[in-house]
Write a protein that binds this DNA or RNA. Structure first.
Lengths: 205, 205, 205, 205
DNA sequence: GATGAATGAGAGTTCATTCAT
DNA sequence: AATGAATGAACTCTCATTCAT
C-alpha cells in the first residue's frame, strides 16, 4: 500500500491527500519546475515544512501523485475486467474507464501527460515501475485476443500494445491541450472502433 | 525558415548550429531545467554570453532546436510525398521518414519526446505552431484516403489522425526510453500494417 | 508607517532594521549599484535570501531606507514645530533638527544626498512621494511668514522654498563630501541667518 | 585642454563629440548605470569598440562630458564677468548664464544634476576638481561684495557660497525633474533677488 | 582608425530544504 | 505533529571591455 513512500505513514491521511491534491492542481497549471513547494503547501492549507513530514522531497510528491492516480486506474481495471469478457470487450472497457477516470480529474490528466515523459533517469525509472501493471494488462488483452483468434496470430504484439496506448494517450493529450472542455469518455467508442479496424477497416465491424 | 529568431542573424552560422547541437545533447541527458546555459555553452565551445548573441533566452534555445528539427522532417515530407502516391503509400512514407530522421538523431528524438508535451502555456503554444504543418500533412493524407475510397467514409478523421501520430509517438518514446539501441526505422512496416488493418485486420491487408 | 512594504510584516523587526542599517552602511561607502545584496546580507548577519523575506528587491531596500530616514525627520518636525512659533522660529527649528538628525547618522546622510537625485523615473517618483510632506512643511512655513508679515508678500514662494532646501542640502552635501568630520548642527544658526537676511542683509536682522 | 584625457587626441574630433552627445542623451534618459556602451555607441553611430579609442573606459566618458559641459560654463563666466561689474551684478550674470546654458541643454542638465553627487570616491574627487574653478568664481564674487561693502563683513562666506550654489542647483533640479518644460533662465531674476535680500528682505532692494 | 563578435566575471533573485520553537 | 523563518547554493542573464580582422 502506497509502497514507495519512504516516510513513515502519518496519522493524518487527510493532510497527505490535501497535499497531493494541491500538488496536482498547482503542477497542472504551472508544471513541475514552476510548482514551488510553498505554493503547494499554501494551496493545501499546511505549512511548507509539513510537506516534508509526508514526502521525502519534491520529486517524491510528483511520483506519489502519479502512482496514486495510475494505481486507481489499475484497480478499476482489475474490478471491471472480469474473466468472462473477450479481448474486444476488454479493450473497450479499458479505454472507457481510462477516459472516464481522466475525464473526472483533468488536472491529474494534465500532470500525467507531461510526466509520463521524463528525461530524468531516476524519475523515468520510477514512472516505468508505476506503469508496468497497466502495460501488463494491455499485453494480456492483446495476447488473449490472439489466443481467442480475434486478433491475427502474426500481429506484432508489442507494437499493437503501443498503438493502443499511444492512441489513448494522444487522445488524452489533445483533450488536455484544448483545456479539457469536451467529454473525453464520449470518444471511447470511436477510438475502439479505429483500433480494432484500423484505417482501412470495413464498417461491417 | 528559422522564422522565430529574434536576434539578428549572426555571421557565424556554425556557432548557431554548435549551440543547438550542444543544447540537444545536454537536454537529452538532463532535461530542460537541468540543462544550464553554462553547460550548453561549454559543450558548444563558446562563452556563456555568446549563447545570448544567438538566442533571446534559454526558452528560445529550446524552441529553436525543436523548430529546426521538426521543420527538417516537414521539408522531407514535402520532398517525398509526391502527388502520384495514394494514401496508403503516403502514410508509409511519412512514418518511414519520421522514424528514419529520429533514428539518425536520438538526442533530438529524446528532447522532442519530452517537449512536445509541455505544461508551460507559452512553450506549448509555440510547439503547437511548429507541429501544425505536420498535423496538416497527416490530415491531408487521411482525407485523401477517404476521397480515394481506401479509408471508410464514416471514419472519425480527427481520431484517425491521432491514432497515427499517437502510435508513431509512442513507438519513438519506447525506443528513446530504452536508450535508442535498436533500429527504429525497421519498425515502420509493422506500424503501418497495424495502423491500416487495426488489431483485428486480416493479413490480406 | 512603512506603508510601502509589500512583503508581509515579519516577526523579526530586528532583522528588518539590521538589513536597513547594513544597506545604509554599504551604500554610503560604495553607492547603490556597487552595494551587492550579498555584501548587505553579510553586513547584516543574515543570509542573502533573508533580504528577500523583508524586501521585494534591491530597489525596495533603497526606497525603504530613505523613506524610514526621511519619515523620522518629518515626524521630528511635527513634534517640534508647535503652533506658537512664528515663521522664523520654525525655520530655525527645521534646519536645526534636519542637521541634527543627519549629523547623528552620516551614512544615511550620504545615501540620501545621492538618491534624492535619481535619474531612474521609477525611483524618482517614489522619492518625490517621500519628500512631499517635508516640502509641504517648508511651504507652510514660508506661507506663514508671509501671512504674519515677516516675509514680503511679493516674494516668489516657490523659489524661496527651493532656496531654503537647496541651501540646507548643499550644506549637507559639503559636509558629507569632507567625510562628516565637523559638527553639522553647529552650522544651523549661520545658515538661518543667511537665509533670512540674504547676502546683503543688515545685521539688524 | 581636455586635460584629463588619457587617450591620445584622435584626429576625428567629430566622433569624440558625437560620442559625448550620445552619452549625454542616453544617460539623461537612463542614468549612468543603465547607459550601456553599446547604446551610446549606437546612438553615436559608431561601433562599440570605437568608444574605447576616444575614452579610457565608461567612467571616463562620464567625467569627460561633465568636464566639457562645466568648462563651457566656466569659460562663459570668464567672458562675461568683466572687472567693471560690482558683486551684485556679477552674481546676477553668473546665475543668468548658468541657467541659460543649462536651459539650452536639458539633457546635460539632467546628467550633471545626478552626477555632481557621486558616492564613488574616485569619481567624486574628479568632479570636485572640475567644479573647483566655478566655486572659486563664486568665492571671489562673495569676497568682492564684502570688500566693496555690499555684503556684510561678518557674513559666513563659505555658507554664503553654498547658499548661492545650493539655490541655483535646487532650482535646476526642480526644473529637470519636471521635464525641463518651462524657461529656466526666466527664473534668474527672482533667484538673485531672494539670494540678495533673503526671506525677510525689504522690497526696497 | 574602425569594427562588432566574443568574452566571462559578476549580480540579483529563487526556492527546496532545514530546524528551532 | 506542525510551523514558517531562515538558509545559501545555484542559475540566468548582462554588459564593460578586448582584439582579430
Amino acid at each position: 500500500m502506497r509502497g514507495g513512500r519512504v516516510i513513515a505513514t502519518r496519522r493524518d491521511e487527510g493532510k497527505y491527500q490535501a497535499i497531493l491534491r494541491a500538488a496536482i492542481s498547482v503542477m497542472a497549471r504551472s508544471g513541475y519546475h514552476n510548482a514551488q513547494i510553498s505554493r503547494i503547501a499554501k494551496a493545501a492549507g499546511v505549512a511548507d515544512g509539513t510537506v516534508y513530514l509526508y514526502f521525502k522531497n519534491k520529486e517524491d510528491v510528483l511520483i506519489s501523485l502519479i502512482r496514486d492516480g495510475i494505481n486507481k486506474i489499475i484497480q478499476q481495471c482489475e474490478r471491471e475486467l472480469v474473466p468472462e469478457l473477450d479481448a474486444r470487450a476488454k479493450l473497450e472497457r479499458i479505454i472507457s474507464l481510462y477516459f472516464r477516470e481522466l475525464n473526472g480529474d483533468p488536472d491529474f490528466a494534465t500532470v500525467s501527460q507531461v510526466y509520463l515523459r521524463q528525461v530524468d533517469a531516476n524519475i523515468r525509472r520510477q514512472i516505468g515501475d508505476i506503469m508496468k501493471p497497466f502495460n501488463d494488462i494491455l499485453d494480456a488483452t492483446v495476447n488473449q485476443g490472439v489466443a481467442e483468434g480475434q486478433f491475427p496470430a502474426d500481429i506484432n504484439r508489442r507494437i499493437a500494445r503501443r498503438m493502443v496506448f499511444g492512441t489513448m494517450d494522444e487522445t488524452v493529450t489533445a483533450w488536455v491541450l484544448t483545456g479539457s472542455k469536451y467529454d473525453l469518455e464520449a470518444l471511447a467508442s470511436d477510438v475502439v472502433k479505429l483500433l480494432l479496424n484500423g484505417l482501412t477497416g470495413t464498417s461491417g465491424k
